[in-house]
Simulated scan of single mutants.
Amino acid sequence: MVSAVMSRIASRIEAILYLKAQPLTIAKLAEYARCDRDLIEEGLIELMADYAHRDSALEVVETRDGYCLQLREPYQDLVQTLVPVDLGVGALRTLAAIALKGPITQTALVELRGSGAYQHVQELVSLGFIKKRRQSDGRSSWVQVTDKFYQYFQVDQLPSPSVPSVQQN
């Protein structure tokens, strides 16, 4: 029973590290996972051991800024080959979140991806991959992918979003 609980915590930590795409402290992980620091520490140990024992392209490492999920060194060359030069991994993950969740409010996107999403949105709008429209109450903006996204990434369609599509002004 304890093993199943710890496995779920480790999986939750893995999801958080993937989605945030930046080093996170134990305190931040505990906050996002809604559990105590001791459980996070145990979950991190299990997750790091799991990654250490599998033949995976990813690893969980501790940096001076916290723990992160990253690509192992032997696979770093793929980043240069597969990631567009103009987009970093963080911006690509933000774009993926918009594509999968969109249209999504910029506020919800920042909650999902962190404050770096503000810069990512500016960059993605300037590159034409997303469009941004003010909400009718003016408090936030909706963001969603454009036709350029579909053409560039050779995607025909995405799963149906849970929020109605943004109307053109």
Rank of each mutant, 00 (worst) to 15 (best):
P159F: 08
V110H: 04
L158C: 04
S141D: 15
V121W: 00
S136D: 13
V143D: 05
T81E: 15
F149M: 02
G138S: 07
L95S: 10
R8C: 10
Q76G: 08
L24A: 02
F153V: 04
Y51S: 09
A97G: 07
D36V: 04
A15N: 10
F153K: 02
V60K: 03
V5R: 14
R54A: 05
E31N: 06
L92F: 06
V155G: 09
K131R: 13
A52Y: 05
Q70A: 13
V89N: 11
S115K: 10
V145H: 00
G138I: 08
Y51A: 06
D147F: 03
R34T: 07
A27K: 15
L47E: 01
Q80H: 12
V155P: 04
A49W: 03
I26E: 15
T25D: 01
R133S: 05
G116I: 02
F149H: 04
L112M: 14
P74K: 03
Q157V: 10
S126K: 15
Y150P: 07
Q70E: 12
S140I: 07
I104P: 08
E46Q: 14
G90P: 06
P74V: 06
M1L: 12
L39A: 09
L92T: 07
A10D: 00
F129K: 09
A97V: 10
L69T: 05
G114V: 01
K132F: 08
G88Y: 03
I26C: 06
S140L: 02
Q151K: 14
A99H: 02
D77N: 13
V121L: 00
V145C: 01
L39S: 06
A57M: 11
F149D: 03
T25A: 02
I40Y: 02
H120F: 06
G114N: 01
R134C: 02
Y150V: 06
I16K: 03
L109Y: 08
G90W: 00
Y75C: 13
I130Q: 07
Q167A: 11
D65Q: 11
L95W: 09
A99G: 07
Y32M: 07
R8H: 11
G138A: 03
Q151R: 15
Q135P: 00
L82A: 14
A57H: 01
K131S: 10
Q168M: 11
G114K: 01
Q70L: 14
K148Q: 14
Q76T: 15
Q144D: 15
H53D: 13
R133N: 01
R34C: 11
R54G: 05
D137R: 11
A27F: 05
I16Q: 06
Q168V: 13
G43T: 00
L124P: 05
W142Q: 08
V163C: 08
T105R: 06
I16L: 07
Y75S: 14
Y51N: 09
G116Y: 09
L44F: 03
R113N: 10
Q122N: 14
